[in-house]
Amino acid sequence: MINIDSYAYSNNLKKIHPAEKSVFAVCTMTVCLTSPTVITPLIILTLMAGGIISKAGIPVRVFLKLMLIPLSFLLLSVLTIAFSISTNPSGFWISQTMYGFTIGIYYPDLITAIHLFLRSLGAVSCLYFLALTTPMTEIISILHKLKVPAIITELMMLVYRFIFVLMETAITIHRAQLSRSGYVSLKVSYRSLSRLFSALLGKVFVKSQELYNAMSARCYTGEIKVLTKKYPISLRNYILIAGLELPLILINLFNRV
């Protein structure tokens, strides 16, 4: 299991002010999502990969595994944009006709799909940069300073926590099933998988109750309070962020004309 939290607390950028990393990630993601060209997302993807691997010291295999997670969803999304079905075979760039229907790709649709794919990957890399270099407690503290409602930040904290609880519980159950030959055949695998989901549901309810009891024992009054460190504000880092963002914005503006 990829424990994002462990890298967030032990990376080489852990001493950088969380506001600086948040500004960099959010601004870069905004530039990426508003880009009218494929050049900007490619630059951003390379920039974030370099920041995560070279600057933060995150292993390459971890970054690649994380990028593979949204890849399948993105591929399914862009394929529905790139491919079209029509009874009129004219206008297709690449096509195949079967039983009176033509399945193919229009060139403008292909460019749109590639653009959407790269923009999505670039935006995801920005989110991974923030998640792998900044602990959730520090992100929550930034949101508190921005006057985000407490109910939203608390839900974020609980959902984030339960993602790891869910993954850890599922891996434990799966490992126990493997030790009992629970996946020796396709039929047995389906049965074991259904039992895994049913057992997982019950255990998650138990874990949630245990978490609430632990919070109540620590005087929980309806608001989750987190301790955060004080970091020095670096003007140099903000100048560096501006120096990285301005060329990307200019590329977007020049390609929009």
Rank of each mutant, 00 (worst) to 15 (best):
T134M: 04
N12P: 01
I16E: 14
F117C: 13
I94Y: 07
G50Y: 14
Y128V: 04
S194C: 11
T112S: 10
M157A: 15
V148C: 08
L79K: 08
E210G: 11
M48A: 14
M136D: 05
F63A: 10
N252K: 04
A242W: 04
I139K: 00
I239C: 15
K65D: 15
L200K: 07
S54K: 15
L127N: 12
F164S: 13
Y107T: 02
A176G: 01
Y106T: 00
S179N: 15
S72W: 08
L121D: 04
L110R: 09
T34A: 13
L193Y: 08
L244N: 04
G202L: 11
V165C: 11
H115L: 12
I171Q: 10
V148Q: 03
C219R: 12
I111W: 10
N252G: 14
T37R: 02
P247F: 12
T97A: 14
C32T: 15
L127G: 15
I151F: 09
P18H: 03
S120W: 04
I152E: 12
L178F: 06
F162A: 01
V165R: 01
G100Y: 09
V148W: 01
I111S: 02
V60Q: 00
A49N: 01
L121T: 13
F73P: 03
G57H: 04
T87C: 00
C219H: 08
V26M: 12
V124T: 10
V38I: 13
F92C: 05
I114R: 05
A170I: 05
T221P: 05
S185N: 12
E138V: 03
E168N: 12
M136Q: 06
F63K: 01
L200G: 03
P232R: 14
N255M: 09
K229N: 13
S189I: 05
L118Y: 00
M48V: 11
H17P: 11
F24R: 09
V62K: 07
M29I: 07
A217W: 13
I103H: 05
V60H: 03
T169N: 15
L250G: 05
T102L: 13
R218C: 14
V206C: 04
